[in-house]
């Protein structure tokens, strides 16, 4: 009995020493990552935040001698027609390709794959994932080659004796939405496949026995169970789509006119074609804000506990 009080402090002292040593070691191992993140990630973010309140430009008198202009960039932005046009195009792009396209198609594919046999699963899964793994610029070029005048689609239509509209000019927004759906569906499919395999079989069976229809089983049983995955997936693809630049820029350059000028393309044009770095940075802040608001909205909507 007398040994306990004596040994306990000693043990805990040793324990805390070990813990401290572990913490120090962890800090040591984390240090390079933290330093790298600070320099290459937080540094630029803070810098962008700062210059979004200035009139810095790429050329002209304000390139080196720029001034703090407060909220001027933002007031210009909110009174600019082309900004609101870009917001609208971004929302169409988001709703069309991410929310309707990727989520619905991804879930549908995941559900069908669950019931399909191994061979079908392998083939379909392979094709869908192949679309996802190729680099973005290659995807963009593939779609450009497919849809541009004299491209693959035109050749097929010609062979069928059908008219060949210049897709990237008559339906530019639809073109990039379809391309982005194609490019991103695999991700949603994989997330949902993983989630669906986690739905207990007896739960679905019990619902069947109680006489639930296929739709009822899906909406009342399966989807509520995978709610967390839906939210994670929706947030991820929303942020990814909102920030998407390569696919749209390479396919249409934001045009014709401003028809596919999504926010990142608009931002790029303002900063690097029109040389207004400060204004471009202010736009990127707004883009970040929209991403945050959208994420909070999903969390609220799906009533997920984090």
């Amino acid at each position: 009995m007398t040994t306990t009080p004596a040994t306990l402090p000693r043990a805990s002292a040793q324990e805390s020493r070990t813990r401290r040593r572990q913490a120090a070691r962890a800090a040591l191992f984390l240090a390079p990552a933290v330093v790298a993140m600070t320099i290459f990630f937080f540094g630029p973010v803070l810098w962008t935040f700062y210059i979004s309140f200035t009139n810095v430009a790429l050329t002209g008198p304000t390139a080196t001698h720029y001034q703090f202009t407060g909220l001027k960039n933002f007031s210009i932005m909110f009174s600019s027609r082309s900004f609101w046009q870009a917001v609208l195009v971004s929302l169409y792009y988001l709703a069309g390709s991410a929310l309707i396209g990727q989520t619905v198609l991804g879930l549908l594919l995941a559900l069908l794959m669950q019931r399909a046999n191994a061979a079908v699963r392998a083939v379909v899964g392979g094709i869908v994932i192949a679309a996802w793994v190729i680099p973005e610029i290659v995807k963009a070029f593939t779609w450009f080659a497919f849809l541009s005048q004299g491209g693959t689609l035109d050749n097929i239509l010609q062979w069928l004796g059908l008219p060949q509209p210049a897709w990237l000019f008559t339906q530019p927004l639809l073109s990039v939405i379809v391309a982005n759906t194609w490019a991103g569906t695999a991700f949603s499919m994989m997330v949902y496949s993983a989630a669906l395999s986690g739905v207990p079989g007896e739960l679905v069976e019990a619902a069947r026995i109680d006489g639930a229809s296929l739709w009822q089983t899906l909406f009342r049983v399966v989807l509520p169970v995978i709610k967390n995955s839906i939210m994670t997936n929706t947030i991820l693809i929303t942020l990814q789509t909102l920030g998407d630049f390569t696919l749209v820029y390479a396919m249409t350059g934001g045009g014709p006119g401003t028809q596919t000028s999504v926010l990142p393309v608009y931002m790029y044009q303002q900063a690097f074609s029109f040389y207004q770095l400060g204004y471009g940075s202010a736009l990127s802040m707004i883009l970040l804000l929209i991403g945050i608001v959208a994420s909070l909205f999903y969390i609220k909507l799906l009533r997920v506990e984090l």
Binding site: A57, L58, T59, G60, P61, A63, T64, H65
Partner: peptide, 11 residues
């Protein structure tokens, strides 16, 4: 056409 602009930028 960029001479003035780049000159005033100090480049």
């Amino acid at each position: 056409f960029l001479v003035n602009s780049d000159a005033s930028a100090g480049y």
